[in-house]
């Protein structure tokens, strides 16, 4: 495949289709993923193309969806399943955290569970507190799960193909606010899991941000450039295993760090990143590293309140100014 322009949503459907095309073991199921093409239209056309035996609609039964995928994977299949709004991971938390993540370990490697779980993250759309969360942090403390958070069509495509090929269970978090984003997609490099991406080079401060926040961090970097502040922006792309090395080498240059995340601060990936680097690389910092994130509240519904909850480019810029003035 040469480089193609696709939306984030189309990149997801394309990745699944390309893996289904070359591997009969790959199948897709979830609520409304077939006939309806997915509530976010991220699986549009797949049932027409691959038939109802490989693209199946399920009842509203998240535990059954995840458990069935685990069971099917034990026999060598490569199920891709959709949990729709990522918040619904709460309904099947046992299957994800206790079964999927631990099955191989508890059996001492007698089984492999190559399941790809797609979940739609993200605030900003006015969906309220139960349809807007970014849930990667719920699973950071569950060894055994690989967690991916693509922010661009290109990463969405490459990471999803890599996830489906991975022999281990993968949580693949899409962001609802990015489905319409357009960008180049290519299959030239599918070895992307665990590799962060430096998406803007800079010398004064390192901004680590994922999904929607990556784009807001880039906006902030633009605003900062007008003030002669040079910000480097890193998108981790993979939450587990986290690419500490790329961030560490950036801070070696900038000596300042801000994590921008779409979630409350406690028990978050940003908190873990800061704790890790403070623990092993404190001498690199000119100022205390900062965490810019959502408020420590559920996500509110009102447009005005939700906008205030989400980190804005201006809030990021303000945090950078404070850090550099330290």
């Amino acid at each position: 495949m040469s480089v193609t322009e696709l939306t984030y949503r189309q990149a997801i459907a394309r990745a699944i289709a390309d893996e289904m095309e070359i591997d009969d073991r790959v199948l897709l199921f979830g609520e409304d993923v077939g006939a309806a093409g997915g509530v976010f239209k991220a699986t549009e056309g797949l049932q027409e193309r691959f038939g109802p035996a490989r693209v199946l609609d399920t009842p509203i039964s998240e535990q059954a969806i995840v458990g069935c995928a685990i069971g099917a994977s034990l026999r060598g299949l490569r199920p891709v399943i959709e949990i729709m709004f990522a918040d619904f991971a709460g309904v099947c938390f046992d299957q994800l955290a206790n079964e999927l993540a631990k099955y191989r370990y508890m059996t001492n490697g007698q089984v492999t569970v190559p399941v790809t779980v797609r979940l739609a993250n993200g605030a900003g759309g006015g969906f309220g507190a139960q349809h807007s969360q970014s849930v990667e942090n719920w699973f950071l403390n569950v060894p055994g799960l690989t967690i991916l958070t693509p922010a661009t069509p290109g990463d969405a495509y490459a990471l999803l193909r890599a996830a489906i090929r991975d022999v281990n269970p993968v949580l693949y978090l899409e962001h609802k606010g990015l489905y319409n984003l357009t960008g180049p997609v290519s299959d030239a490099d599918l070895d992307v899991i665990g590799r962060a991406s430096v998406v803007r080079e800079g010398s004064d401060i390192t901004l680590v941000a994922s999904q929607l926040m990556r784009h807001r961090a880039l906006e902030a970097a633009e605003l900062l450039a007008a003030e002669n502040v040079s910000a480097e922006v890193i998108d981790p792309r993979t939450m587990v295993p986290f690419d500490y090395e790329t961030v560490r080498s950036s801070i070696t240059k900038t000596n300042n760090l801000i994590c921008v995340q779409e979630c409350s601060p406690g028990g978050s990936w940003g908190a873990t990143l800061i704790a890790t680097l403070a623990g092993d690389s404190l001498e690199l910092f000119d100022a205390p590293p900062l965490l810019v994130g959502g408020d420590n509240t559920p996500i509110p519904y009102s447009g005005a309140l939700e906008a205030a909850w989400l980190p804005s480019p201006e809030r990021i810029v303000d945090a950078v100014r404070r850090t550099l003035a330290y």
Partner: peptide, 25 residues
Amino acid sequence: AYGAFAIVGAHLPITVGLAFASRYL
């Protein structure tokens, strides 16, 4: 013997998947 599960009910959906795989394959 694909496993003994310590969360009540957790293995029933997994059994459905094992059975589903037989049909699929």
